[in-house]
Design a binder for these strands. Structure first.
Lengths: 110, 110
DNA sequence: CAAATATACATAAGACATTTAGGTATAGCT
DNA sequence: AGCTATACCTAAATGTCTTATGTATATTTG
């Protein structure tokens, strides 16, 4: 009841892909933090959601992981596969259209 | 894979409330049709989703139904309970904020 | 006028993403 | 030494939605 958690459903996949497209490569924890920062703590991705999502996207062949040791800890970076860039664009466009239609339905400007 | 069906998850409740708030009273089939028309057939509400949603909202005390016979067929109209108007506004605002943040994340203007 | 389509409601099984809750481990600060 | 931040992971439970059916009347069309 507190945040807009329930609205996230279905959009997480595309959020991840959009952030990866913009930033080249990112790791799970970083995706959570950046989302928190960019949305003023209004959209909070949980680790229980983000990691299975990343694993699924890799399994589907959309992204590829690579491990790097940074400051003694291992980070698992993910990047979009070049062959999937078009599909990623398409998915982001779909979500973009959806939010636009939603705002029309809700009678919101812009 | 064709439409943006998956994005709907979590927003249906609020869409229904927003349409009811704007139009005073509506029946299930009408909500589906209006949504289809307003979004250029991009957001399609299915009957398997809309009716359980209306039932749930009524059970929760957010809306109230009333049956009317129109053209020989019975229609079940729903309207927002006055005591819930504030809660409805609040929910619509939350969804509005969510879509705004989402558009920021996706690097979309407006 | 018979058949197909549109209108209008409803329910139930199944799919599926996310929440909630737990677990491991290292680095850095107090 | 203990707490917090970083960083990964998994699994059971939850809950919405899809898909598939079912019923029934009104209207359109061949």
């Amino acid at each position: 009841m507190d945040s807009n958690k329930k609205f996230l459903n279905g959009t997480l996949n595309t959020i991840v892909l959009a952030l990866l497209r913009e930033n080249g490569k990112m790791y799970g924890y970083e995706i959570c933090q950046l989302t928190k920062d960019k949305t003023n703590e209004k959209i909070l991705l949980t680790e229980g959601a983000i990691y299975p999502t990343l694993h699924r996207l890799e399994k589907e062949g959309m992204i590829t992981s690579s491990k790097e040791k940074v400051n003694g800890r291992i980070r698992k970076y993910y990047a979009i596969n070049k062959s999937s860039l078009q599909e990623v664009d398409s998915q982001i466009n779909l979500l973009s259209q959806f939010t636009a239609h939603l705002r029309t339905l809700l009678n919101l400007s812009a």
